[in-house]
């Protein structure tokens, strides 16, 4: 836990987050809350009170919500089928390869004549899927490793953390590339796994830090004294208190995994099947026609930036709100 522990600086940063950004121990919360708030106001209730008035959070949450709603209703509002090449006969392989806007196709079509607007709208669905599933995979892996290390300690902790440290000693995007390269045939799932795998060690360290900080705290001691079983202590008393930083991190990972998936497509490691469009994939594929038709890249890129910004704003303001220090 000490910030001076050498080996790798990234892990110290993660540990700091685990220690400071909210969810911390009960004592911390009580001390901080005692300054100006009535007793009995939970961390979450007071965080929510602050978030409601925070414009940064409201903007981020609105963007994220719009994105999710768009993904859900996209099949019904897309003007055309995103997989059908309506304007295929207007694709000119030589001069200007990509059909421009025309009635019914306000943004024109892509290189095989599919309606660009419909592909952007429907693309929100796979993009959300990549973000959410990658975050869930990363979270699940990190939860298992983090609980093993943080709750049991001893040699389990040492072993798990060695592996985690090594994984953190590889630049994360490079690790994602390496894992994606293992797939014989890239699919949406292999992209998700590659993007999620690099998040596992981060979540693991974060959770371990939070759990370790609580092992000798009063509420855990009290639970043990009352004869609560070890399993219940970990899952009912320690874990809920450790979730704050994990939730913050998840929100941020939603953004990074969408951006990382785009980078994989850019390097040709993404999902080659584009019947179901995804923004990162559209952006990666658009590189072939980038000089003649830059708009093919610009539209999906703007969508990605907008959504990533939304998740990031939400995550950053959550981090601030859950930080017990900010109560003062």
């Amino acid at each position: 836990m000490s910030p001076a522990n050498p080996m790798n600086r990234r892990k110290d940063r993660i540990d700091e987050l685990a220690a400071t950004s909210g969810g911390g121990t009960a004592t911390l919360v009580r001390e901080a809350g005692a300054v100006d708030e009535k007793p009995g106001v939970s961390l979450i209730a007071s965080a929510w009170k602050r978030l409601r008035r925070n414009p940064v959070f409201l903007i981020g949450a609105t963007i994220s919500l719009l994105f999710v709603v768009l993904a859900l209703v996209s099949p019904f509002i897309a003007p055309h089928d995103p997989a059908v090449g309506y304007l295929l006969d207007k694709v000119r392989p030589q001069s200007n390869p990509v059909p421009g806007p025309e009635p019914g196709f306000p943004l024109g079509a892509d290189d095989v004549g599919r309606d660009l607007l419909s592909r952007l709208i429907v693309g929100s669905q796979q993009t959300l899927l990549v973000g959410v599933v990658a975050t869930l995979f990363g979270l699940a892996g990190g939860l298992v490793l983090g609980i093993l290390a943080g709750a049991f300690g001893g040699w389990v902790d040492a072993l798990v953390m060695r592996v985690v440290d090594v994984l953190l000693s590889i630049p994360s995007l490079l690790l994602a590339f390496s894992i994606a390269a293992l797939a014989t045939r890239a699919t949406q799932l292999t992209v998700i796994i590659a993007v999620a795998a690099v998040q596992v060690p981060i979540f693991a360290r974060l959770l371990r830090g939070s759990l370790l900080a609580q092992r000798h705290s009063d509420h855990v001691l009290a639970a043990r004294a009352l004869g609560v079983t070890e399993r219940a202590v970990v899952f009912r008393h320690m874990l809920p208190n450790a979730l704050g930083p994990v939730i913050v991190q998840s929100t941020l990972v939603l953004a990074t995994s969408i951006i990382d998936a785009a980078a994989l497509s850019f390097l040709g490691l993404g999902n080659p099947n584009d019947r179901r469009p995804e923004w990162g994939q559209m952006l990666g594929r658009a590189q072939q026609y980038i000089y003649d038709s830059p708009h093919l890249a610009v539209y999906p890129a703007l969508c990605i930036i907008f959504v990533a910004l939304g998740f990031t704003l939400m995550g950053e303001s959550l981090r601030e709100a859950l930080d017990p220090k900010s109560r003062r």
Binding site: A255, I259, A262, A263, F266, G280, L283, A301, I304, I305, A308, L309, T312, L313, E316
Partner: peptide
């Protein structure tokens, strides 16, 4: 914040 949200490439 925007700087982090833009894909580098």
């Amino acid at each position: 914040l925007v700087g982090v949200a833009v894909p580098v490439f």
